[in-house]
Amino acid sequence: MKVGIVRFPGSNCDEDALHAVVDFLGETAVMLWHKDHDLHGADVVILPGGFSYGDYLRAGAIARFSPIMQEVAAHAAHGGPVIGICNGFQIACEAGLLPGALLRNAGSYVSMPVIIRTERTDTSFTGASSVGQLLRMPIAHGEGRFTADEATLDQLEANGQIVFRYVDAHGNATPESNPNGAMRNIAGVTNVGRNVVGLMPHPERAMDRALGSQDGVVLFESLLVAANV
């Protein structure tokens, strides 16, 4: 499997994603510059975290105009796996690859470990996980409050497009376990085709026991299932 990791001006989790794919998964990765016009043979694309284009206008709003995003959108349209993490999730929403939007947190900027619950395993990033599995990994964002209108939220529920929810240690989606005020405790969603997945938590920072959690491994392993190579 070859993973393409997009590097925008202001990306800062690209090296972590590379480390996760190459050193922990043992797969091949290629860095994709935002001005590139092709995916260099990548089977999977990761949009990493950071502050692409300085978060000008709105987080993720400008990145969608970069040349590489035209290729990423085409890849997604053909069913290719695309994973948006943190700022990558914001970019995917702004680009229309995923529903909803990510607004300023109900509280302030948060940087802490959270627990998320896998809701669906029929997506490109959860095929190796199990429904109800609790995963501990860090979040670090100021604008991660998932928001959509009620009709859209109901539709996402009905279609099974809610992939992760913030939960407590018992697996319950409580207000206290919701770090940013996300509607219905939503931490991650997928598109109708289930090949594009976005989430605010950082699985690439939960690969190494030395960093406190290896719960991100199962999500990266899911890419092998999705890539089918």
């Binding site: 709003a61 939007a101 607004l103 209108d149």
Partner: peptide, 8 residues
């Protein structure tokens, strides 16, 4: 198309 987010 750009300046405002139609969702929010």
């Amino acid at each position: 198309r750009l300046l405002a987010n139609p969702v929010t």
